[in-house]
């Protein structure tokens, strides 16, 4: 029997990030998981609602939590809701956490919910990001077993952005500073993963709307670093990150006189390709920066293992990374 999860797509996945939605839905059956969309969910408020008014912002999110807890989605004591969008993931888990920590807030939110015939008991829904489900519930081994066309030859910069690992309102599933789960996942698919030092940096968020100058610089930094590592593509797991890096790449090039051409893809799209699903079902072609050239690099043979640069005779030993680390191609 497949594992069932409540599914909260969020506004972006309806349209702007339709490629993310399509590819997530396409790979789910391969991974033996089933998404049950929350009934008549509403917007999470992104980073905007809370800037205007507290209690309505919390009540807005809590309506979704209330629906999820009522819908009895995944069985057991706690309903699990998967949110593919990092901002939605953050808002849902934050409201649950702060309602648990501040009883007065919880009481007020519930009074508001009661006006719509709803209620929410803090702690009754566990909100999870799609990546967490994929790497921790399904697991790398199970994924490896499903790979039919390894993505050999594709150099990937794994990009996590901020909110899925920070601050971890319901407990972080990966390191907030130097996460590795997407790196390992991409390695499992056969891609060459670069050790992307800015992998958890900010994409600029809503600054594109408030001060484009500030946003373009943040986007430029990410593109510059990916280009230095000769990445064929940046892989994301958040609609906002995808939009900023993809939609504003041309603006960055214009502003800084650069010539970056780095397609920005969702991790689910690459999973679908590796699983041998038809590209048409995975939302390819929606990206502004065309991914065709990058995808053409995918070869049938694994690339030769890069020779480890031999340290000089005088070189001092390098401390080992903590257990679970992945050795990157350098």
């Amino acid at each position: 029997m497949s594992a069932k999860y409540g599914y909260y797509p969020g506004c972006s996945l309806e349209r702007n990030a339709i490629a993310y939605h399509q590819s997530a839905v396409a790979v789910a059956p391969v991974l033996d998981i089933e998404f049950v969309e929350l009934d008549d969910w509403n917007c999470c408020g992104a980073t905007e609602y809370i800037a205007i008014d507290v209690l309505p912002a919390y009540a807005l999110v809590a309506r979704n939590l209330a629906i999820a807890s009522r819908q009895k989605l995944s069985g057991g004591n706690q309903n699990q809701v998967v949110a593919p969008c990092s901002a939605c993931f953050l808002n849902l888990s934050k409201v649950d956490k702060y309602m648990s920590d501040a009883p007065r807030l919880a009481a007020n939110v519930n009074t508001a919910l009661a006006a719509g015939g709803l209620s929410y008991k803090p702690g009754s829904v566990r909100v999870r990001h799609l990546l967490d489900i994929v790497v921790n519930d399904v697991g790398y081994d199970a994924i490896a077993a499903k790979v039919q066309k390894p993505l050999y030859g594709l150099r990937i910069a794994p990009y996590y952005g901020c909110l899925i690992v920070r601050p971890g309102f319901q407990g972080a599933f990966d390191d907030p500073e130097y996460p590795m789960s997407l790196d390992r996942l991409m390695g499992t698919l056969g891609t060459t993963v670069v050790d992307f030092p800015v992998k958890a940096h900010c994409c600029g968020g809503h600054m594109t709307q408030i001060s484009e100058q500030v946003a373009l610089e943040l986007i430029r930094q990410l593109l510059q670093n990916a280009a230095e590592y000769e990445a064929d593509a940046i892989v994301t797991l958040c609609p906002m990150c995808q939009l900023n890096l993809d939609g504003y790449q041309e603006a960055v090039n214009r502003h800084y006189g650069t010539k970056y051409h780095i397609p920005i893809l969702y991790f689910t799209q690459l999973m679908g390709l590796a699983f041998g699903l038809p590209a048409a079902t995975l939302g390819f072609g929606k990206e502004f920066v065309d991914a065709a050239a990058a995808l053409n690099k995918i070869g049938v043979q694994p690339p030769p293992k890069p020779k480890k640069e031999r340290a000089g005779k005088e070189a001092l030993p390098m401390p080992e990374m903590a257990a679970g680390g992945l050795s990157h191609e350098s």
Binding site: L55, P56, R104
Partner: peptide, 25 residues
Amino acid sequence: GIEQLQAILAKARELGAEDGAISQG
């Protein structure tokens, strides 16, 4: 459920105003 949502938001705004507008715990 837009009407339900609007009722919830209206109630939240009202409570927020009573509770010192922005003070929430």
